[in-house]
Every structure is written in C-alpha cells, then in structure tokens.
Amino acid sequence: MHTLPQQLANGLFLGSTYGLIAIGYTMVYGIVQLINFAHGEIFMTGGFGALTVYLVLPHGTSLWLALPLMLIGGALTSVLIALGAERFAYRPLRNAPRLAPLIAAIGLSLALQQAVHNLYPKATSPRAFPQLAAGPWHLAGIRIQSGDLFTVLAAPICMIILALFVQRSRTGRAMQATAQDPDTAQLMGIDTNKIIAAAFGIGALFAAVAAVCYGLRYGEVDYSMGFQAGLKAFTAAVLGGIGNIYGAMLGGLVLGLAEALATAYISNVPGMQQLGGGSWADVWAFVLLILVLLLRPQGLLGERVADRA
C-alpha cells in the first residue's frame, strides 16, 4: 500500500482538505490582516453541524440523500459562528493594536473548542461520522475510498465556484478592491463591513465542506480536530502566498503531498531512520513552513508588496 502513486494520492486527498480550510485563513488575512485563530474551530463546528443534521434525520436515511443536507447544516453552523465572531469579537477591535484581536481570536478558539467539548452530547471523545457505503475503488494501483472521492470532487468544484465568484460577481470584485486598498474602496461606495463579513462567511463555508470531507475520510469528528488542522491550513496559506486564494489551495496540496511523502520515505534517508512515520508528520510540515519562509517568504504565488512609508 505504500507505493509512490498511493502516497501521492494520499497527499492529494489530505492536501485538498487543507486547501479548503486554508481559503478561509487567506481570505480573512488578505482583507483585514488578521490571523483568525478561531478558523480551525469554525472548521470543527462545521463538522459537528453536519453530524447533527445526520443525527436528527430519520434513522436509515441514505447517506446520498443526507449528504447535501449535512453540507447545508454544517455550512449554516460554521457561517453563523464565523459571522458572529466577526461582528462581536473582531469588529470592535479593528483599530486596536495588532495583539488585541489576536488574543481575542485565541480566546474564541479556546471557547469554541471547550463549548463543544462540554456542551455537545458525548463530545468528550470523538464522535462517529457516517460513512458512505460505496467503494473502495482501485484505479491504477491506487486505493480510493468513498471519502477520498468526495474530497477529490468537492475541492475543485469549490475552487471553480470561488474563482467565478471572485472574478465575476460584484461582491467578489469589491473584495479584491477592499483587499488592495480599504480606504479607497470605502470611498468608492463599498460597504467594507459587509465585504469583511462576506470574507468570513465564505471562508467558513469552505471550512464546512472541508469538515465533511474530513468526517467522511476519517469516520469521526472530534472537538480538538480544529487546532491541528487549522495550524496546518494556515501553513498551507502561507506556503501558497497569503492573501491569494489559488495559493491557498496550491499550498494545501503541496503541504499534503509533503506530509505524505515524508511520512513514507524519510526513513529511507540515511541517518533519519527513526524520523519517518506518522508521529513525525507534523514536524515535517513545520520544517517545510520554515524553509518556505526562509527561501520564498511571499509564498509560491504571492507577490512582494511594497510598504508605503
């Protein structure tokens, strides 16, 4: 099972999920220069929202029918929480020094995590997520599970929708304008508050999709899944070029591939026999981040932005 094509495929599946989450980070950072620490938890609540929908549907409903509803449920949850966070935790701090919204974000992340942990029924340990009764398929020696298939379909579709939205729609163009120059955008009549809220909302939407991908792939959702995934996703966003949505997905894919390959093959490098395997995967992800920051800090698709004195 550890053939190169399989590893590459694993990396793609993993990376697509990272990429979808990374979009949320990159959109928010691109517009308000805030690392939304709580985005990982927004991803997590999306998963629980989807799970809740599944649980309230009549027993025995086919997952194929339930899946769209779960997506909607998850999206509603994450978007509402994201909008609430923006409105009540971040907006009042928009003119405060950099540290204040960051700390508020940390607080929010903790609060959301613990709220789910304490208040969601039986969430103290991971809760089982329904699995699609199909597959696994084998294609060219690669084993594809149902969750992977969903991911590999969902991610590109989301990216296409996002690209169309950003480039064709009024809101999308307004977002680009606000990201480049918020003051002028306001002077042009753009309601920056709404745009910022939209950025949060869209990010949350894709995070919810990612959460469903995650749930289908791993068969469970856990209150702590947001922290690790969030960190990786932000790494992916930086990798691809912060503020660039295509970079976010690209970064995600690169990160996923790097993790998968490192996990499988690092032990073959002389001297690093014991540094392979799953327990070191996260370490390699961060090493990659540091390398990128050293060699190409603007990320793969980013551009150097001149600072106005």
Partner: peptide, 19 residues
Amino acid sequence: NYQLLAFGVALILLMRFRP
C-alpha cells in the same frame, strides 16, 4: 470542566473592554 471555556470567554471580554 468549564475552566478553559471560561478562560476563552474571559480573554475575548478582556480584549474588548480592557486590553
């Protein structure tokens, strides 16, 4: 059990009202 939850909420309020 609610320690961290309270802590998180407290951080948000602290930043809002007395940073």
